[in-house]
Nucleic acid binder design. Sequence first.
DNA 1: CGCCATTTTGAGTTGTGTCAACCACCGTGG
DNA 2: CCACGGTGGTTGACACAACTCAAAATGGCG
Lengths: 222, 222
Amino acid sequence: MYLFPHASPDMRGSADAGAEGPGRVVGATTMLFREGDSADALFEVVTGVFRATKVFADGRRQVVAFAYPGDVIGFGHGDAYRFDCDALTPGRVQVTAHSDIGQAMRNRPELGEKLLTMAAGEIASMHDLSVLLCRKSAMERIAGFLLSLASRTGKLGNEKRVSLPMCRADIADHLGLTIETVSRNLTKLKIRGIIDLPGRGNFVIRDLERLRGQAECETTVH
Amino acid sequence: MYLFPHASPDMRGSADAGAEGPGRVVGATTMLFREGDSADALFEVVTGVFRATKVFADGRRQVVAFAYPGDVIGFGHGDAYRFDCDALTPGRVQVTAHSDIGQAMRNRPELGEKLLTMAAGEIASMHDLSVLLCRKSAMERIAGFLLSLASRTGKLGNEKRVSLPMCRADIADHLGLTIETVSRNLTKLKIRGIIDLPGRGNFVIRDLERLRGQAECETTVH
DNA sequence: CGCCATTTTGAGTTGTGTCAACCACCGTGG
DNA sequence: CCACGGTGGTTGACACAACTCAAAATGGCG
């Protein structure tokens, strides 16, 4: 789910060292990069929410990840970026050129191991993500998604308003569902009193335990 | 799909340096490691086919990957392996202790970048895998799987017999389907004259172009 | 207030899963 | 050599979750 949930303090230190000033300020809908652009920098999200999207020839779209403060975007590409990335909200990103990272690694070989460990963690979480996408029901995916948003914004508790800056289409394309299915399941959670939907762009967890239950295994898949 | 399709010559060189002799010979069904075992080595497949499997508490099973000669297994774990790995056929693996890799990286900092590039490739291919699992129809997945097997065994052409060393359950658990769906779609491909199934453990591509067509976009998903 | 995009709701379809029976292959043992 | 049993694969009937198409409702904004 996260591009880089495992970013280690060392990594962030190196990013800080390589970046100039307080980071780049961007407005909502600003593109950080497009698929095919020369991949020459890492972006660490300082504030705001970003969206990584892959569009296929036949029009199918996959929102690869949403990136929150602390997440790092731009790793896991070759010479060129493999997907688009833009801002869902105004925000700020710390930019580090790839060349600076190579430099830092030559100076501090142990940094390489740190990065490698990070990458290993990322690979493991992608394995998990594959499994989840491939084997979970719509309700499990949506409940799990809401939980992950609450967790990442530090509001994993009852009665706290959590921001939902992405539209239904983004959620659908992230979870491999349609907007109708997303909407229906959100409504179902609301009717059951598990969440509340006070206007667009927000939700409230009313019953965390039951939401967790929905994320587990509502229906038997396989 | 591949655990390590991007293994660079340098990487393999280092593996050779660290391994003793011509590699370890294993029989079919030999376990290389189990989930939870202390993750202290990398395995590069020399001959044979290996299977990486993750089993969940609720019994759901995911075949994370099949590894063919040239693929490397054992990367992307933390201290402990995150899934089981066993041999589908008799084979041979080159073993390199993790400690030797750290050592080599300290001596040759550029090796770290190589490994990092490998890891980046792995992350990218996992992104792709997520997309495929999440958005492709059963037929697209199966046709794509057959194509990838043919490609990896160097038999990507018409009328060549390709080995299919894994059982239907393995294919199903790899592609996120049931054995019945796998079987039905294989039969459908056979009826249409696109493939042939001459006894267990093999298949033949009769019409490569049409198989590619099936892998693309048979039915509209989303 | 009125427009437009987004979201929700409804009705019907369909692909894939489930359950169950059947078949084919293959090694074993009489 | 053949009967047997077991494993793995195929086929069929049916159910249901999610998709598709369509229309109505809501919310934001000028």
